[in-house]
Design a protein around this nucleic acid. Structure first.
Lengths: 194, 194
DNA sequence: TAAAAAAGAATGAACGTTCATTTTCTGTAA
DNA sequence: TTACAGAAAATGAACGTTCATTCTTTTTTA
Protein backbone atom coordinates (compact mmCIF):
# COMPACT_ATOMS: atom_id res chain seq x y z
CA UNK A 1 0.00 0.00 0.00
CA UNK A 2 2.81 2.39 0.85
CA UNK A 3 4.36 1.99 -2.56
CA UNK A 4 1.09 2.42 -4.40
CA UNK A 5 0.17 5.37 -2.24
CA UNK A 6 3.43 7.02 -3.02
CA UNK A 7 2.88 6.52 -6.72
CA UNK A 8 -0.54 8.10 -6.63
CA UNK A 9 0.86 11.10 -4.82
CA UNK A 10 3.54 11.55 -7.45
CA UNK A 11 1.06 11.16 -10.24
CA UNK A 12 -1.21 13.76 -8.70
CA UNK A 13 1.68 16.11 -8.17
CA UNK A 14 2.57 15.78 -11.85
CA UNK A 15 -0.99 16.41 -12.95
CA UNK A 16 -1.33 19.45 -10.71
CA UNK A 17 1.98 20.87 -11.86
CA UNK A 18 0.90 20.40 -15.46
CA UNK A 19 -2.33 22.30 -14.86
CA UNK A 20 -0.65 25.20 -13.12
CA UNK A 21 2.18 25.58 -15.60
CA UNK A 22 0.03 25.15 -18.69
CA UNK A 23 -2.37 27.75 -17.33
CA UNK A 24 0.46 30.21 -16.92
CA UNK A 25 2.57 29.57 -19.98
CA UNK A 26 0.64 27.32 -22.36
CA UNK A 27 1.29 23.69 -23.23
CA UNK A 28 4.27 23.97 -25.53
CA UNK A 29 5.94 26.66 -23.46
CA UNK A 30 5.94 24.33 -20.48
CA UNK A 31 9.01 22.08 -20.45
CA UNK A 32 8.95 18.63 -18.91
CA UNK A 33 11.87 19.69 -16.73
CA UNK A 34 9.76 22.43 -15.17
CA UNK A 35 6.84 20.10 -14.56
CA UNK A 36 9.26 17.67 -12.92
CA UNK A 37 10.75 20.36 -10.73
CA UNK A 38 7.38 21.60 -9.54
CA UNK A 39 6.32 18.03 -8.74
CA UNK A 40 9.63 17.45 -6.93
CA UNK A 41 10.58 14.62 -9.24
CA UNK A 42 13.21 13.84 -11.82
CA UNK A 43 12.26 14.44 -15.45
CA UNK A 44 12.90 10.77 -16.12
CA UNK A 45 10.32 9.80 -13.51
CA UNK A 46 7.52 11.38 -15.53
CA UNK A 47 8.05 8.64 -18.08
CA UNK A 48 7.27 5.98 -15.49
CA UNK A 49 3.79 7.44 -15.15
CA UNK A 50 3.07 8.72 -18.65
CA UNK A 51 4.14 7.66 -22.12
CA UNK A 52 5.25 11.12 -23.19
CA UNK A 53 4.29 14.77 -22.95
CA UNK A 54 1.20 14.41 -25.13
CA UNK A 55 -0.01 11.50 -23.03
CA UNK A 56 0.54 13.53 -19.87
CA UNK A 57 -1.62 16.38 -21.10
CA UNK A 58 -4.32 14.10 -22.51
CA UNK A 59 -4.60 12.26 -19.20
CA UNK A 60 -4.60 15.55 -17.30
CA UNK A 61 -7.44 16.78 -19.47
CA UNK A 62 -9.53 13.68 -18.89
CA UNK A 63 -8.90 13.76 -15.17
CA UNK A 64 -9.97 17.40 -14.89
CA UNK A 65 -12.98 16.83 -17.10
CA UNK A 66 -14.05 13.89 -14.94
CA UNK A 67 -13.86 15.82 -11.72
CA UNK A 68 -15.73 18.65 -13.42
CA UNK A 69 -18.66 16.51 -14.53
CA UNK A 70 -18.69 14.46 -11.33
CA UNK A 71 -19.10 17.71 -9.43
CA UNK A 72 -21.68 19.04 -11.87
CA UNK A 73 -24.01 16.07 -11.57
CA UNK A 74 -23.46 15.12 -7.94
CA UNK A 75 -26.69 16.58 -6.61
CA UNK A 76 -28.85 15.95 -9.66
CA UNK A 77 -31.19 13.02 -10.02
CA UNK A 78 -33.56 12.08 -12.78
CA UNK A 79 -36.72 12.46 -10.75
CA UNK A 80 -36.29 16.23 -10.67
CA UNK A 81 -38.31 18.43 -12.98
CA UNK A 82 -36.50 19.78 -16.01
CA UNK A 83 -36.27 23.29 -14.67
CA UNK A 84 -35.14 22.17 -11.24
CA UNK A 85 -32.66 19.71 -12.74
CA UNK A 86 -31.18 22.32 -15.02
CA UNK A 87 -30.90 24.81 -12.19
CA UNK A 88 -29.16 22.32 -9.94
CA UNK A 89 -26.68 21.32 -12.61
CA UNK A 90 -26.05 24.88 -13.77
CA UNK A 91 -25.34 26.09 -10.25
CA UNK A 92 -23.02 23.20 -9.50
CA UNK A 93 -21.11 24.00 -12.67
CA UNK A 94 -20.88 27.64 -11.70
CA UNK A 95 -19.72 26.70 -8.22
CA UNK A 96 -17.07 24.40 -9.63
CA UNK A 97 -15.78 27.00 -12.03
CA UNK A 98 -15.48 29.57 -9.30
CA UNK A 99 -13.98 27.30 -6.67
CA UNK A 100 -11.74 25.33 -8.99
CA UNK A 101 -10.79 28.18 -11.24
CA UNK A 102 -7.48 26.61 -12.22
CA UNK A 103 -9.34 23.58 -13.54
CA UNK A 104 -11.74 25.86 -15.39
CA UNK A 105 -8.90 27.75 -17.04
CA UNK A 106 -7.22 24.54 -18.04
CA UNK A 107 -10.37 23.16 -19.65
CA UNK A 108 -10.96 26.39 -21.53
CA UNK A 109 -7.50 26.17 -22.97
CA UNK A 110 -7.99 22.54 -23.99
CA UNK A 111 -11.32 23.32 -25.61
CA UNK A 112 -9.99 26.21 -27.68
CA UNK A 113 -6.62 24.98 -28.92
CA UNK A 114 -5.22 21.95 -30.76
CA UNK A 115 -3.33 20.90 -27.64
CA UNK A 116 -5.45 17.79 -26.93
CA UNK A 117 -5.75 14.71 -29.11
CA UNK A 118 -9.05 14.46 -30.94
CA UNK A 119 -9.70 11.11 -29.26
CA UNK A 120 -9.37 12.53 -25.75
CA UNK A 121 -11.54 15.47 -26.75
CA UNK A 122 -14.31 13.12 -27.87
CA UNK A 123 -14.11 11.15 -24.66
CA UNK A 124 -14.34 14.36 -22.65
CA UNK A 125 -17.56 15.31 -24.41
CA UNK A 126 -19.24 12.04 -23.53
CA UNK A 127 -19.11 12.94 -19.84
CA UNK A 128 -21.81 15.56 -20.37
CA UNK A 129 -24.53 13.07 -21.23
CA UNK A 130 -26.77 13.68 -18.17
CA UNK A 131 -27.07 17.34 -19.10
CA UNK A 132 -27.99 16.48 -22.68
CA UNK A 133 -30.63 14.14 -21.29
CA UNK A 134 -32.21 16.92 -19.25
CA UNK A 135 -32.39 19.03 -22.35
CA UNK A 136 -33.92 16.27 -24.42
CA UNK A 137 -36.56 15.83 -21.72
CA UNK A 138 -37.14 19.59 -21.58
CA UNK A 139 -37.69 19.82 -25.31
CA UNK A 140 -40.10 16.89 -25.25
CA UNK A 141 -42.08 18.57 -22.46
CA UNK A 142 -42.11 21.87 -24.32
CA UNK A 143 -40.18 23.67 -21.57
CA UNK A 144 -36.97 24.17 -23.50
CA UNK A 145 -36.66 25.58 -27.01
CA UNK A 146 -36.03 22.88 -29.61
CA UNK A 147 -32.39 23.64 -30.36
CA UNK A 148 -29.35 21.46 -30.94
CA UNK A 149 -27.23 20.40 -27.97
CA UNK A 150 -24.44 22.64 -29.20
CA UNK A 151 -26.67 25.68 -29.27
CA UNK A 152 -28.06 24.97 -25.82
CA UNK A 153 -24.56 24.49 -24.47
CA UNK A 154 -23.34 27.65 -26.16
CA UNK A 155 -25.94 29.81 -24.45
CA UNK A 156 -26.60 28.03 -21.17
CA UNK A 157 -23.20 26.73 -20.10
CA UNK A 158 -20.36 28.14 -22.15
CA UNK A 159 -20.82 31.73 -20.96
CA UNK A 160 -19.61 30.55 -17.55
CA UNK A 161 -16.20 29.82 -19.05
CA UNK A 162 -15.98 33.34 -20.35
CA UNK A 163 -17.00 34.74 -16.99
CA UNK A 164 -14.51 32.70 -15.01
CA UNK A 165 -11.70 33.67 -17.34
CA UNK A 166 -12.71 37.32 -17.03
CA UNK A 167 -12.79 36.91 -13.26
CA UNK A 168 -9.41 35.23 -13.32
CA UNK A 169 -7.89 38.05 -15.28
CA UNK A 170 -9.15 40.42 -12.61
CA UNK A 171 -11.72 42.12 -14.83
CA UNK A 172 -14.85 41.03 -13.01
CA UNK A 173 -16.12 39.85 -9.65
CA UNK A 174 -18.67 37.07 -9.77
CA UNK A 175 -20.53 37.37 -6.48
CA UNK A 176 -23.82 35.72 -5.56
CA UNK A 177 -25.91 38.47 -7.06
CA UNK A 178 -24.06 38.40 -10.38
CA UNK A 179 -24.31 34.64 -10.40
CA UNK A 180 -28.07 34.74 -9.94
CA UNK A 181 -28.26 37.22 -12.81
CA UNK A 182 -26.15 34.90 -14.91
CA UNK A 183 -28.43 32.00 -14.17
CA UNK A 184 -31.45 34.05 -15.16
CA UNK A 185 -29.75 34.96 -18.43
CA UNK A 186 -28.89 31.31 -19.09
CA UNK A 187 -32.38 30.11 -18.41
CA UNK A 188 -33.96 32.95 -20.40
CA UNK A 189 -31.96 32.03 -23.45
CA UNK A 190 -33.10 28.41 -23.59
CA UNK A 191 -36.55 28.33 -22.00
CA UNK A 192 -39.80 28.52 -23.91
CA UNK A 193 -41.59 31.74 -22.98
CA UNK A 194 -44.89 31.20 -21.19
CA UNK B 1 5.28 52.10 -55.22
CA UNK B 2 6.32 48.71 -56.53
CA UNK B 3 8.62 48.19 -53.58
CA UNK B 4 6.02 49.19 -51.04
CA UNK B 5 3.39 47.01 -52.67
CA UNK B 6 5.68 44.05 -52.57
CA UNK B 7 6.35 44.57 -48.91
CA UNK B 8 2.70 44.69 -47.99
CA UNK B 9 2.09 41.48 -49.89
CA UNK B 10 4.84 39.73 -47.98
CA UNK B 11 3.61 41.04 -44.68
CA UNK B 12 0.10 39.82 -45.44
CA UNK B 13 1.42 36.46 -46.52
CA UNK B 14 3.24 36.14 -43.22
CA UNK B 15 0.16 37.10 -41.22
CA UNK B 16 -2.03 34.68 -43.12
CA UNK B 17 0.45 31.86 -42.75
CA UNK B 18 0.63 32.56 -39.03
CA UNK B 19 -3.15 32.33 -38.70
CA UNK B 20 -3.44 29.09 -40.60
CA UNK B 21 -0.55 27.35 -38.90
CA UNK B 22 -1.43 28.51 -35.39
CA UNK B 23 -5.01 27.35 -35.96
CA UNK B 24 -3.78 23.90 -36.90
CA UNK B 25 -0.91 23.36 -34.51
CA UNK B 26 -0.96 26.09 -31.88
CA UNK B 27 1.45 28.97 -31.39
CA UNK B 28 4.45 27.21 -29.90
CA UNK B 29 4.13 24.20 -32.18
CA UNK B 30 4.44 26.47 -35.19
CA UNK B 31 8.10 27.12 -36.09
CA UNK B 32 9.18 30.31 -37.78
CA UNK B 33 10.69 28.17 -40.52
CA UNK B 34 7.26 26.75 -41.33
CA UNK B 35 5.64 30.19 -41.37
CA UNK B 36 8.40 31.35 -43.70
CA UNK B 37 7.92 28.41 -46.01
CA UNK B 38 4.17 28.89 -46.26
CA UNK B 39 4.67 32.60 -47.01
CA UNK B 40 7.32 31.71 -49.63
CA UNK B 41 9.95 33.70 -47.82
CA UNK B 42 13.21 33.09 -46.02
CA UNK B 43 13.06 32.75 -42.22
CA UNK B 44 15.39 35.73 -41.95
CA UNK B 45 12.94 37.86 -43.89
CA UNK B 46 10.35 37.60 -41.15
CA UNK B 47 12.67 39.66 -38.97
CA UNK B 48 12.55 42.53 -41.45
CA UNK B 49 8.83 42.82 -40.83
CA UNK B 50 8.52 41.80 -37.18
CA UNK B 51 10.77 42.04 -34.16
CA UNK B 52 10.44 38.42 -33.19
CA UNK B 53 7.94 35.59 -32.95
CA UNK B 54 5.99 37.18 -30.10
CA UNK B 55 5.71 40.43 -32.01
CA UNK B 56 4.50 38.57 -35.07
CA UNK B 57 1.67 36.91 -33.19
CA UNK B 58 0.74 40.08 -31.28
CA UNK B 59 0.48 42.03 -34.53
CA UNK B 60 -1.46 39.24 -36.16
CA UNK B 61 -3.91 39.29 -33.28
CA UNK B 62 -4.46 43.02 -33.50
CA UNK B 63 -4.88 42.88 -37.25
CA UNK B 64 -7.49 40.14 -37.03
CA UNK B 65 -9.28 41.87 -34.18
CA UNK B 66 -9.42 45.09 -36.18
CA UNK B 67 -10.92 43.48 -39.23
CA UNK B 68 -13.38 41.69 -36.95
CA UNK B 69 -14.64 44.83 -35.27
CA UNK B 70 -14.57 46.87 -38.47
CA UNK B 71 -16.85 44.28 -40.01
CA UNK B 72 -19.05 44.08 -36.93
CA UNK B 73 -19.80 47.82 -36.81
CA UNK B 74 -19.81 48.62 -40.52
CA UNK B 75 -23.58 48.84 -40.90
CA UNK B 76 -24.39 50.18 -37.45
CA UNK B 77 -24.99 53.82 -36.70
CA UNK B 78 -25.91 55.55 -33.51
CA UNK B 79 -29.32 56.76 -34.64
CA UNK B 80 -30.66 53.20 -34.60
CA UNK B 81 -32.79 52.01 -31.73
CA UNK B 82 -31.07 49.80 -29.17
CA UNK B 83 -32.78 46.65 -30.32
CA UNK B 84 -32.16 47.35 -33.97
CA UNK B 85 -28.57 48.33 -33.29
CA UNK B 86 -27.88 45.22 -31.31
CA UNK B 87 -29.47 43.03 -33.96
CA UNK B 88 -27.43 44.62 -36.73
CA UNK B 89 -24.18 44.23 -34.83
CA UNK B 90 -24.93 40.70 -33.66
CA UNK B 91 -25.75 39.54 -37.15
CA UNK B 92 -22.65 41.11 -38.63
CA UNK B 93 -20.56 39.36 -36.00
CA UNK B 94 -22.25 36.07 -36.76
CA UNK B 95 -21.69 36.60 -40.47
CA UNK B 96 -18.04 37.37 -39.92
CA UNK B 97 -17.50 34.34 -37.75
CA UNK B 98 -19.07 32.07 -40.31
CA UNK B 99 -17.44 33.58 -43.37
CA UNK B 100 -14.05 34.21 -41.81
CA UNK B 101 -13.95 31.09 -39.73
CA UNK B 102 -10.15 30.96 -39.69
CA UNK B 103 -10.07 34.42 -38.14
CA UNK B 104 -12.68 33.37 -35.61
CA UNK B 105 -10.68 30.30 -34.61
CA UNK B 106 -7.55 32.35 -34.24
CA UNK B 107 -9.24 34.90 -32.00
CA UNK B 108 -10.72 32.15 -29.84
CA UNK B 109 -7.27 30.73 -29.33
CA UNK B 110 -5.82 34.12 -28.44
CA UNK B 111 -8.62 34.81 -25.99
CA UNK B 112 -8.25 31.52 -24.15
CA UNK B 113 -4.49 31.04 -23.86
CA UNK B 114 -1.47 32.98 -22.63
CA UNK B 115 -0.16 33.28 -26.18
CA UNK B 116 -0.79 37.04 -26.51
CA UNK B 117 0.88 39.80 -24.52
CA UNK B 118 -1.38 41.39 -21.94
CA UNK B 119 -0.87 44.76 -23.60
CA UNK B 120 -2.09 43.56 -26.98
CA UNK B 121 -5.02 41.87 -25.31
CA UNK B 122 -6.07 45.11 -23.67
CA UNK B 123 -5.82 46.99 -26.95
CA UNK B 124 -7.96 44.35 -28.64
CA UNK B 125 -10.71 44.82 -26.06
CA UNK B 126 -10.91 48.56 -26.69
CA UNK B 127 -12.12 47.92 -30.22
CA UNK B 128 -15.47 46.74 -28.89
CA UNK B 129 -16.50 50.13 -27.52
CA UNK B 130 -19.45 50.77 -29.88
CA UNK B 131 -21.11 47.59 -28.69
CA UNK B 132 -20.63 48.54 -25.06
CA UNK B 133 -22.20 51.90 -25.87
CA UNK B 134 -25.31 50.25 -27.28
CA UNK B 135 -25.63 48.25 -24.11
CA UNK B 136 -25.21 51.27 -21.91
CA UNK B 137 -27.92 53.00 -23.86
CA UNK B 138 -30.15 49.92 -23.64
CA UNK B 139 -29.78 49.73 -19.88
CA UNK B 140 -30.58 53.43 -19.51
CA UNK B 141 -33.72 52.98 -21.63
CA UNK B 142 -34.76 49.92 -19.63
CA UNK B 143 -34.58 47.64 -22.65
CA UNK B 144 -31.56 45.62 -21.56
CA UNK B 145 -31.05 44.03 -18.15
CA UNK B 146 -28.66 45.99 -15.95
CA UNK B 147 -25.69 43.64 -16.10
CA UNK B 148 -21.95 44.20 -16.42
CA UNK B 149 -20.42 44.38 -19.88
CA UNK B 150 -18.71 41.08 -19.28
CA UNK B 151 -21.95 39.35 -18.47
CA UNK B 152 -23.69 40.81 -21.49
CA UNK B 153 -20.80 39.77 -23.70
CA UNK B 154 -20.74 36.29 -22.19
CA UNK B 155 -24.36 35.62 -23.07
CA UNK B 156 -24.96 37.70 -26.17
CA UNK B 157 -21.71 37.41 -28.14
CA UNK B 158 -19.40 34.77 -26.78
CA UNK B 159 -21.69 31.83 -27.59
CA UNK B 160 -20.98 32.53 -31.26
CA UNK B 161 -17.36 31.58 -30.71
CA UNK B 162 -18.41 28.26 -29.30
CA UNK B 163 -20.74 27.67 -32.21
CA UNK B 164 -18.20 28.50 -34.89
CA UNK B 165 -15.63 26.23 -33.27
CA UNK B 166 -18.19 23.44 -33.10
CA UNK B 167 -19.03 24.06 -36.74
CA UNK B 168 -15.36 24.06 -37.64
CA UNK B 169 -14.82 20.73 -35.94
CA UNK B 170 -17.63 19.35 -38.07
CA UNK B 171 -20.02 18.85 -35.17
CA UNK B 172 -22.69 21.32 -36.21
CA UNK B 173 -24.11 23.15 -39.21
CA UNK B 174 -25.04 26.76 -38.62
CA UNK B 175 -27.60 27.52 -41.31
CA UNK B 176 -29.92 30.52 -41.48
CA UNK B 177 -32.56 28.89 -39.33
CA UNK B 178 -30.10 27.96 -36.60
CA UNK B 179 -28.66 31.42 -36.75
CA UNK B 180 -32.05 33.03 -36.25
CA UNK B 181 -32.57 30.74 -33.26
CA UNK B 182 -29.20 31.75 -31.91
CA UNK B 183 -30.06 35.40 -32.23
CA UNK B 184 -33.32 34.84 -30.39
CA UNK B 185 -31.43 33.08 -27.60
CA UNK B 186 -28.92 35.92 -27.41
CA UNK B 187 -31.55 38.59 -27.26
CA UNK B 188 -33.67 36.63 -24.77
CA UNK B 189 -30.79 36.38 -22.38
CA UNK B 190 -30.11 40.11 -22.19
CA UNK B 191 -33.44 41.85 -22.86
CA UNK B 192 -35.83 43.00 -20.19
CA UNK B 193 -39.05 40.97 -20.44
CA UNK B 194 -42.10 43.05 -21.34
C1' DT C 1 18.90 -9.87 -2.24
C1' DA C 2 16.39 -9.30 -6.32
C1' DA C 3 13.23 -6.33 -8.51
C1' DA C 4 11.07 -1.95 -8.96
C1' DA C 5 11.34 2.97 -8.75
C1' DA C 6 13.80 7.03 -9.14
C1' DA C 7 17.52 9.93 -10.23
C1' DG C 8 20.79 12.89 -12.86
C1' DA C 9 23.45 13.25 -16.73
C1' DA C 10 23.65 12.59 -21.56
C1' DT C 11 21.80 12.77 -26.38
C1' DG C 12 20.20 14.27 -30.55
C1' DA C 13 16.86 16.92 -32.77
C1' DA C 14 14.51 21.24 -33.40
C1' DC C 15 14.01 25.86 -32.73
C1' DG C 16 14.46 31.18 -32.74
C1' DT C 17 17.49 34.29 -34.20
C1' DT C 18 21.64 36.28 -36.44
C1' DC C 19 25.31 36.67 -39.86
C1' DA C 20 27.59 37.15 -44.14
C1' DT C 21 26.39 37.41 -48.65
C1' DT C 22 23.63 38.07 -52.80
C1' DT C 23 19.82 40.13 -55.26
C1' DT C 24 16.77 43.80 -56.26
C1' DC C 25 15.51 48.49 -56.35
C1' DT C 26 16.08 53.51 -57.06
C1' DG C 27 17.82 57.69 -58.46
C1' DT C 28 21.30 60.02 -61.16
C1' DA C 29 24.68 61.15 -64.80
C1' DA C 30 25.85 60.51 -69.40
C1' DT D 1 17.10 55.67 -72.70
C1' DT D 2 21.23 53.24 -70.56
C1' DA D 3 24.71 52.34 -67.09
C1' DC D 4 25.76 52.17 -62.65
C1' DA D 5 26.50 53.06 -57.66
C1' DG D 6 24.70 52.98 -53.30
C1' DA D 7 20.95 51.50 -50.42
C1' DA D 8 17.42 48.37 -49.16
C1' DA D 9 15.51 43.88 -49.14
C1' DA D 10 16.02 39.21 -49.10
C1' DT D 11 18.39 34.97 -48.56
C1' DG D 12 20.41 30.33 -46.85
C1' DA D 13 23.47 28.70 -43.76
C1' DA D 14 25.11 28.75 -39.16
C1' DC D 15 24.89 29.47 -34.05
C1' DG D 16 23.76 28.71 -29.54
C1' DT D 17 20.13 27.22 -26.75
C1' DT D 18 16.41 24.51 -25.22
C1' DC D 19 13.81 20.64 -25.06
C1' DA D 20 11.76 15.77 -24.95
C1' DT D 21 13.41 11.59 -24.23
C1' DT D 22 16.72 7.85 -23.02
C1' DC D 23 20.62 5.68 -20.67
C1' DT D 24 23.17 4.28 -16.79
C1' DT D 25 23.53 4.27 -12.10
C1' DT D 26 21.74 4.60 -7.46
C1' DT D 27 18.15 4.12 -4.05
C1' DT D 28 14.12 2.10 -2.22
C1' DT D 29 10.97 -1.62 -1.51
C1' DA D 30 9.39 -6.19 -0.34
Amino acid sequence: MAALQKSIDKRNALINATIELVNNDGFHATPMSKIAKMACVSPATIYLYFENKQDLVNKTYLEVKSSYTAYAFATYDETMSVKEGFEVIWKRIAEFKLKEDAYAMFLAQCDNTPMIDEESRQEGIRHLQPLLDVWKRGIKEGVIKPMSDYMLYAYAINPLSFLTIAQNRGALVLDDKQLEQAFEAAWSSIKVCE
